[in-house]
Nucleic acid binder design. Structure first.
Lengths: 109, 109
DNA sequence: TGAATATCTCAACCAACGCTGAGATGTTCA
DNA sequence: TGAACATCTCAGCGTTGGTTGAGATATTCA
């Protein structure tokens, strides 16, 4: 009954593409050295833009740009220093960071 | 004694930039949907290029390009199928993948 | 109030990267 | 051996993304 058609790529057709959107988004954020360093430094507590910029040897507006991306992703949030409101202090949102870590671990576990 | 020079950005000067090179490299690899999907699919066992390409709806040479990057990073390795050597089967190097996961966790922990 | 500081926003430039197409290599099978 | 298949490599193209520079906003302090 079965005609002998040239069979192309027989193996495992039940394979389906996983949902990796979240891991990809996190990967793109970590893929930059400045952002990865910021995420790591904020692990130990809040820091202002000028601190981060000084430690990284980067310009402050550049660091600010990267912080905006992390903020848009919800990974960090900013609040003004209580004593000196001129400084914006950034801190991680550990709940969001935790979900980000889980998304990457789903790929690399 | 101390002259009152305009002090710029007083906070935390003891802050130092962390080493994030490995995490950045992994992030760049995961930052692409095709590669992230491949890494996730290979978690369940080896697959050939045509399987991965079919599941992802991507062209085989494109998938091959991405596999080359994962191979260069040491995350995956290839070997020919014992029964039909026409197929190249890719599998993860779990030791390398484990170190990659640790590097990302150092950032997001 | 005005000057200095801290930060943000955005447009422009340039480099990195993914996709495509074409050709080459290696394997199977008639 | 030759045709079909599986995969690789690479140059070219278009898009994405980071850095820079300039200007705007907010805060402090003399």
């Amino acid at each position: 009954m079965s005609t002998s058609l040239p069979v192309i790529c027989v193996p495992r057709l039940d394979l389906e593409a996983p949902d990796v959107a979240e891991a990809v988004a996190i990967g793109a954020l970590v893929a930059d050295g400045t952002r990865a360093s910021i995420l790591r430094m904020l692990r130990d507590g809040p820091h202002c833009v000028c601190e981060l910029a000084a430690a990284l040897g980067e310009r402050e507006n550049n660091v600010s740009n990267h912080l905006a991306k992390l903020r848009d992703a919800g990974l960090v949030r900013a609040s003004r220093h209580e004593a000196n409101a001129r400084f914006l202090y950034y801190e991680r949102d550990e709940a969001v960071v935790g979900r980000a870590r889980a998304a990457v671990e789903e790929i690399l576990r």
